[in-house]
Design a protein around this nucleic acid. Structure first.
Length: 526
RNA sequence: GGGCCGCUAGCUCAGUGGUAGAGCACCUGACUUUUAAUCAGGGAGUCCUGGGUUCGAUCCCCAGGCGGCCCA
């Protein structure tokens, strides 16, 4: 390594240099820098769980020895003694290191440790004078080096961008972040249990679709080289799940990612996790009841109760949830906003509803029908005020190409959305199972698409063919898992509940050695 | 896509048209039951990037990058 040849090289900061020196010093004394493994008898969490309440006298009597491993988060040094706080990612435990209890080699290791290093410790459990549960280290192994300084112990890592880009650092130093993802895991497990208990079969359907259907959204496009065909990342699993109901899977669900090529916000990530479930011989009203039961159960399992604090609000998932027809909600909101009586019938006439929309500051497009305009008004005026769980039901047929119409009202479909703290959490309907009507709906969507609506649904001939085989009366629902977890963890952004949210790439600014290690990419055929 | 805000030491943040500071972290010394350990001393910066104005820019102006919030 020559000096002064590259004066432009960014200088490493003193802490990086120091840490490398500490590692080198250990290697010089024959300590393996990255040993193959370490045999533990316990985890830190297991010790804390088992003995978090055990008194010091009892610990002394029992003489409990344990071998544990973890990452050092705090070092308090007292010359010939040191206190280390180590973590297994969940719990923290203090390790007491003193020179007269260790071999010369092990104390040498202890003296060269940095915050962030991984160590293994064998020792006896005891309580210090300040009653802190601790391990009296009898021996110590170096397990892996942390070459980079961690964020400080008091404030942790608060920079939002770094927390998302380097989630591993966030998880190391912010216990609250770990808890969010533990809650997320409990939510998923609770949902699976709830559905499996009711006879639902969990399946996995394609993520890559030749026709992006099942929702009104713009897809990501990709290309299969061998088949030389365009493919779309799915925007919803809906149409495949209903094919399965045709195939006799009368209760079916999937929990997995969907992808929508749209904006990013505190409520939108391009890839997001959705639960979809379908139950034959069921209507949308049944699903309201089932949704009430499911969310109350999930809230209890994941958080311990049915009341959740979300920002300044307390949300109750105790059934029954409020129910409100969409047109009812919109007509009431318009009546209040404009100070003139607006009826639900007014919302069914395009001229009238378009004029009302203009009066509240919207600009209805010429190609938008009464139904679409009504929904736009709902989103502008009503959505954010729906704090407590509320079913908004009976949507315009025009905006619901996969839903079944009401018997008494062909302009309205048997559909609901669930809103909580102003967010759409779920969307459900009685499934349209008449293949002739389905084709008419797709045709109407195609006309919208030709008029420039890129979110309009595409024609899916195989789906219609499946309906021709006979889809029994079925109701289905999609639940946005990320948003549900946001509510249950009081997280203000969807990025707080997604481990690695999508970010624009940014220079890592490392040490110049971060090239691709994989094989060269295939040439792009296009 | 539009508006507003942010980017300064590893982290959390002050600050200034004249080459920058605190706390934690780091280094040296003291210290064998500490709890944000303590005490004494010390080192550490591409003030996001590029251009402009200026004798002089981290600061003012313009453009760009990344992020956040709000709106669409």
């Amino acid at each position: 390594m020559s000096e002064s040849e590259e004066p432009q090289e960014p200088k490493d900061n003193d802490q990086l240099v120091q840490r490398r020196a500490n590692l080198a010093a250990l290697v010089e004394r024959g300590v393996p820098p990255y040993p193959q493994s370490f045999r533990c008898t316990d985890t830190v969490s297991a010790i804390v769980t088992a003995h978090g309440e055990t008194g010091g006298d009892d610990l002394d009597t029992a003489q409990i020895h344990a071998t544990i491993a973890g990452r050092i988060l705090i070092i308090r040094s007292f010359g010939k003694a040191r206190f280390l706080v180590i973590s297994d990612g969940v719990s923290r435990l203090q390790v007491y290191v003193r020179k007269d209890a260790l071999s010369e080699r092990d104390f040498e290791i202890a003296a060269r440790l940095d915050i962030g290093d991984h160590i293994g410790v064998e020792g006896r459990l005891f309580r210090t004078r300040t009653n802190e549960l601790s391990v009296w280290a009898g021996s110590l192994e170096f397990l892996a080096k942390c070459l980079v300084p961690l964020p400080e112990k008091w404030h942790g890592l608060t920079d939002i961008e770094t927390r998302y880009r380097q989630r591993y650092v966030d998880l190391i130093v912010n216990p609250a972040s770990r808890r969010v993802f533990e809650t997320r895991a409990r939510v998923l497990a609770a949902i699976r249990n709830f559905l499996v208990d009711r006879g639902f079969l969990e399946v996995e359907t394609p993520m890559m679709h030749a026709v992006a259907g099942g929702a009104l959204a713009r897809p990501f496009t990709t290309h299969h080289n061998a088949l030389d065909m365009p493919l779309f990342l799915r925007i919803a699993p809906e149409l495949y799940l209903k094919r399965l109901v045709v195939g006799g899977v009368e209760r079916v669900f999937e929990i997995n990612r969907s992808f929508r090529n749209e904006g990013i916000s505190t409520q939108h990530n391009p890839e997001f996790t959705m639960l979809e479930f379908y139950q034959a011989y069921t209507g949308y009203l049944d699903l309201m009841t089932m949704t009430e039961q499911m969310l109350a159960t999930v809230a209890r399992t994941a958080t311990g109760g049915e009341e959740i604090t979300v920002g300044d609000n307390t949300v109750s998932f105790t059934a029954p949830f409020r129910r409100l027809r969409l047109r009812q909600a919109v007509s009431e909101a318009l009546t209040e906003r404009l100070g003139i009586p607006v009826s639900e019938d007014d919302l069914r006439r395009r001229e009238t509803v378009a004029a009302l929309a203009t009066q509240v500051g919207l600009e209805p497009g010429g190609d938008q029908g009464a139904g679409k305009i009504t929904v736009d008004i709902f989103e502008a005026l009503c959505e954010r005020a729906l704090i407590q769980p509320t079913f908004i039901h009976d949507f315009p047929t025009e905006v619901s190409p996969l839903s079944k119409q009401r018997d008494d009202d062909p302009d309205t479909v048997e559909r609901f959305e669930l809103f909580v703290v102003g967010m759409e959490l779920a969307n459900a309907f009685s499934e349209l199972n008449d293949p002739v009507e389905q084709r008419r709906r797709f045709d109407a969507q195609l006309r919208d698409r030709e008029a420039g609506d890129f979110e309009a649904h595409e024609m899916d001939e195989d789906y219609i063919r499946a309906l021709e085989y006979g889809l029994p009366p079925t109701a289905g629902e999609g639940v946005g898992i990320d948003r549900l977890v946001m509510v249950l963890t009081d997280s203000p952004s969807i990025r707080d509940v997604i481990l690695f949210p999508l970010m624009r790439p940014k220079d890592v600014g490392g040490h110049g050695d971060h090239g691709d290690h994989g094989e060269p990419a295939e040439p792009d055929p296009s």
